[in-house]
Design a protein around this nucleic acid. Sequence first.
DNA 1: ATGACTGGCGTTGCCAGA
Length: 260
Amino acid sequence: MKIASFNINGIKARAGALTDWLDEAEPDVAVLQEIKSIDENFPRELFEERGYQVETHGQKSFNGVAILSKLPLEDVTRGLPGDDDDEQARWIEATVMGDHTAVRVCGLYLPNGNPAPGPKYDYKLAWMERLKARAEALLEAEEPALMAGDYNIIPQDEDAKRPEAWAKDALALPDSRAAFRRVVNLGFTEAFRARVQSPGHYTFWDYQAGAWNKDDGIRIDHVLLTPQAADLMTDCQIDKEIRGREKPSDHVPIWVNLDA
DNA sequence: ATGACTGGCGTTGCCAGA
């Protein structure tokens, strides 16, 4: 079961690049972030004609997440529990029925948090507390599950080309990193780092200042696996190459393969 | 040292992103 995460930065602007990548990478499941679309305007037919079931949790102009799946989905839920007043569309989950194993798949778009300090940073940290609570519940189920998406967290300095440039940014501040570690340390496996220990692997390159041409990137898109999912992992890769294409997102996909 | 690019909304600029 190949499960990918991709912050597409707008479904309307990325429809062509996204379907090109889907046709080549052929993930069974893709969680998308920043669809920047309400559910009614999401071009579901583009994906349904490729055999994907489409589940969206959209919002006008900003944020918005979705799950595409060629495998049957059950128990789709929208929104991160813990704050009924939170109107930002940043969380969706569903159970994917594999050939012999079901996997609970959570797709997330964690708040950016800049400028820090400030209310946006407070929202980021509060959101991460809610994420931790949901993560604890996933672990208690003792089943294959994963949380994949744009975490907007640079876990360590080696996950940035120029860590000094991010030292005071909400993506890398000590409080941000600590909140991320608190989630991972509950018992999750950070999929990419479990398989690749070397520095210099990124999932985001800014559109500005020639960041891609200088490989001036950061690694902020992650997949966290429960122990039962980690036991099934056979691969995890970043599809770096598509950042160099026409009209790219500023993020690239990261994916895992699970023997499920 | 600074600014820079893109998408959405909507209109010729502004907000947000990271």
